[in-house]
Amino acid sequence: MDIFLQQGREKGDKVYIFHGKNRRFVAFGIRAIPVAIVGKITMGCAKISSFMKFIQTGLLGEISLGLKRDTVEGLLGEPQDISVSSTPYILNYGSLQLSFSSNDPHATLQSIHLYFDEIVEFPHGLQLEGWLPNKSVSAEEFLIHAEHFNVVLEKDEQHTFKNPQIGFKSKADVIVVFTIEEESVKLYSIHLSKRLR
């Protein structure tokens, strides 16, 4: 898998990072240059982080789609906030948002959303390990980290919009979204939702 860095010809052109099996990338009228895999990618840790494992497998620690609400609350404790709506029923744990089919204690987990800001908070019961990204993480840094652990991310057209955001999807259907802000592409969210049949 290759990583590409888009470089502009004139001052003020935006920088975008893309990669894929078949050297596919998004071009906005700017030539693409392969990035020399930044030395040999020394990430400082040999074990895959909880976030990369979530992207690769759809499992966030012990949390997975289909778990019952009472089981999730038993693992994570009481949420910081609860939605006023009963469908979907949403539990907020800082930067983690979990949606259930209803407010019934036996309702199942339908989606897992992680939102990234300057400060990222997760419940202690989640027991995350390794690299913990936040909003300041660039798309380049994130994709190099994913590459280091062989986490495959393909561009996701459904979550990509020319100016506001770029989306990627893993083989486990986890979506990673980056927002385009002025001169940078920054991490916004990572989420997994149950597929509608």
Rank of each mutant, 00 (worst) to 15 (best):
Q97K: 13
G74D: 14
K47R: 11
T108E: 15
S99G: 12
V72K: 05
M52I: 13
Y89P: 10
E154K: 04
A146E: 05
E118C: 00
V84I: 09
Q127L: 09
E118I: 02
F142W: 04
S95E: 07
S95L: 03
P88Q: 13
L126R: 07
H145D: 05
S111R: 09
G66C: 08
P105E: 14
T87Y: 14
L60V: 08
I144W: 00
Y93S: 07
N134M: 00
L67Q: 14
H106R: 11
V84Y: 13
L76A: 07
F116R: 02
Y89R: 15
I112S: 00
V120Q: 01
F54A: 06
N134L: 00
K40F: 03
I144A: 07
M43R: 04
G125S: 10
H113F: 11
L76N: 06
Q110M: 13
V120I: 02
N92H: 13
Q56I: 03
G130Y: 00
L98M: 09
Q80L: 12
I63G: 01
Q127A: 08
L143Q: 11
S138D: 09
A146K: 03
G77F: 09
K47C: 03
L109W: 01
G44N: 06
F54C: 07
S101P: 08
G94V: 03
L98A: 06
E140D: 03
T42H: 08
I48V: 14
L143T: 02
F54Y: 08
S85R: 15
N134Q: 02
P105K: 12
L60H: 04
K40T: 11
T87S: 15
G58V: 07
S102V: 05
L109Q: 05
G74C: 09
L59W: 07
W131L: 05
T57E: 13
S86V: 13
L114P: 04
S49Y: 02
V151E: 03
F142N: 04
G77V: 09
D117H: 04
Q127D: 11
E140I: 02
N134F: 00
E129D: 07
